[in-house]
């Protein structure tokens, strides 16, 4: 085994592979990659104990650029491949890189089942609301009416809300960040990584070739204060250029945007990501129907539930306690046997 000196501190370089990064110039993926690579040394996990798993799509090239173990699998299946890795080796640190087409369309089934099982995965979903690698068809998060090569008269599909979907799929950690703010990405990824169980992070990511400016109404520097609703644990949800706006619950328990002056500071919703009941997190995930009106970012939900692969391991341990380690001879010779001389 190659010798490892664990006392030498690791740097971003130790987590970056020698492969040339081949995304289009100006792609939002670059900033996500930089955020992850530079966060890695802080997480305290050595590169050999990390596996990045991806499906197919632009973002799914991500593992090639990490100097960790990695599998670039097939379209949509990354959560399933990652589940297999986690079940086999609960000691590993497993990340899933997916996109809106990969994770929500062809691989929707695997994503929701990985979330409900609560496999210990950090899932980063790059949402650019378009199919990039296949050169610009609408995706399951594209807005209705979108003109693309496959929808020359406008898309008639109603889009998914990825966070609503994740919460509905019993996800224990749900967050949103965006490719314009490395600090926010890193803080969100750090939280997701620290979470025990499946952590789902939606990243608003700009595809400057096929869907440029999809998030510009909320992400342009001068608009962020008024359009990004930052969720902070235990704090009232307020935003706006002068922090004059807030989020409150109406008589039905639905989150909506209010002017603080109109309702009074005491009516502003205090964010609690640890609530077991998903109703408020769900409602917050739907505060903006599209990323054109005030949109929450940060951690929506962070609750505890038993971790899948740990439960698998626990069952193995219990079986060994009960019946002792497997005895092949006893197994094969179980039931009625007879001897022929």
């Amino acid at each position: 085994m190659a010798a490892v000196d664990e006392t030498v501190p690791l740097t971003r370089k130790d987590y970056s592979s020698d492969q040339e990064v081949r995304w289009c110039p100006g792609c939002g993926d670059y900033s996500v990659l930089a955020a992850v690579q530079s966060l890695m040394p802080d997480l305290g996990v050595r590169p050999e104990n990390i596996v990045f798993v991806s499906g197919i799509g632009c973002s799914s090239r991500f593992p090639y650029y990490m100097n960790t173990y990695g599998v670039h699998s097939i379209h949509g299946r990354a959560p399933a491949v990652a589940t297999g890795i986690a079940v086999a080796r609960p000691d590993l640190d497993v990340w899933v890189i997916t996109g809106d087409g990969d994770g929500l369309s062809i691989g929707g089934n695997h994503l929701i089942h990985a979330l409900r099982r609560n496999v210990n995965l950090t899932i980063l979903m790059f949402n650019n609301q378009i199919y990039g690698l296949t050169k610009g068809q609408y995706s399951p998060t594209s807005e209705q009416g979108k003109i693309t090569k496959s929808t020359p008269f406008g898309s008639i599909d109603y889009p998914f809300n990825p966070l609503s979907l994740a919460i509905g799929a019993e996800a224990t950690f749900v967050a949103r960040t965006h490719d314009m703010d490395r600090k926010h990405m890193q803080e969100t990824f750090r939280r997701a990584h620290a979470h025990k169980g499946a952590a789902f992070v939606e990243i608003y990511q700009n595809c400057n070739v096929f869907n440029d400016g999809a998030f510009e109404e909320i992400l342009q520097k001068d608009k962020r204060d008024s359009m990004l609703v930052s969720l902070k644990q235990g704090e009232p949800i307020i935003f706006g250029d002068d922090l004059e706006m807030g989020v409150a619950l109406n008589e039905y328990g639905e989150a909506h945007v209010v002017r603080i002056a109109d309702v009074g500071a005491e009516s502003i919703l205090v964010h609690d990501e640890h609530r077991t009941d998903p109703a408020i997190a769900f409602s917050l995930s739907r505060l903006a129907e599209r990323p054109t009106t005030p949109t929450p970012v940060g951690v929506f939900r962070d609750i505890e539930r038993p971790v899948y692969e740990q439960e698998v391991t626990a069952q193995l341990a219990r079986a060994q306690e009960r019946s002792g380690p497997g005895d092949l001879r006893k197994l094969i010779e179980s039931g009625n046997t007879w001897e022929v001389a």
């Binding site: 798993v53 399933a80 491949v81 589940t83 297999g84 089934n109 695997h110």
Partner: peptide, 17 residues
């Protein structure tokens, strides 16, 4: 697994690991 595709994908993951 949730489906046949997931089943073999998990098996692939396990073998990789």
């Amino acid at each position: 697994a949730e489906d046949e595709i997931a089943a073999i994908s998990m098996a692939i993951g396990a073998s990789f690991a």
